[in-house]
């Protein structure tokens, strides 16, 4: 019984850990790419405060979730502690919401840049040149935040399922022994 629970726990935690880890890295890299490389003539040399702040919040939440997931993997020895560590999903949810905000603001506050990049595609002409580093940084950041959003949510939802399973277990079960 205990062995089965341990296996189940491991099977749940590892994917969650991976998702949380990837989401954290993507959020971190996405925000860094934006803040470091996307100050341009399209935003007057200043990146969006909304994106930076929301991005920072997302990083903190994603980091917290990741930390708790790691702790859960190595330290949860009882139903009680497992249940407590399963709250890492709060971090995932927070990361999801803030990441979503950062993503949306990155589109809104950089509409000039997007317009200039997309213009040649819709007009059929060459268009105004935009620095390749700026384009690649922006779209990479954009894509990373988008993916991180859903990975955070997926990690949170998975963790929530685990939480329900833990709640359904008998009181005395030691899941990691």
């Amino acid at each position: 019984m205990i062995q089965k629970l341990k296996q189940q726990n491991f099977l749940v935690l590892i994917p969650v850990l991976i998702m949380s880890c990837v989401a954290f890295v993507l959020t971190l890299v996405g925000v860094l790419l934006y803040t470091n490389n996307c100050a341009s003539e399209f935003n007057g040399g200043k990146v969006s405060v909304n994106v930076s702040n929301l991005g920072l919040a997302a990083i903190i939440f994603a980091g917290a979730a990741l930390l708790l997931d790691l702790l859960a993997l190595f330290l949860s020895r009882s139903k009680k502690s497992a249940s407590l560590f399963a709250l890492s999903r709060i971090g995932n949810y927070g990361a999801f919401i803030f990441c979503l905000g950062a993503f949306l603001y990155e589109a809104l506050d950089e509409y000039s840049l997007i317009g200039t990049i997309m213009y040649p595609i819709f007009s059929g002409t060459v268009g105004d040149p935009v620095e390749p580093l700026l384009v690649s940084s922006y779209f990479t950041s954009f894509a990373f935040l988008f993916v991180a959003c859903f990975l955070s949510l997926a990690a949170g939802v998975t963790m929530r399922k685990k939480s329900h399973k833990i709640d359904a277990q008998p009181k005395e079960a030691n899941v990691n022994e």
Binding site: N50, Y93, F96, F98, L100, G101, L104, Y105, L108, L153
Partner: peptide, 22 residues
């Protein structure tokens, strides 16, 4: 069981509406 998903959904919608307002 409904509160947790509702909380996340509301949070996401709140963020979307904030951006829409902006």
């Amino acid at each position: 069981k409904c509160w947790e998903p509702l909380m996340v959904t509301m949070g996401a919608l709140f963020m979307v509406s904030m951006v829409a307002k902006a």
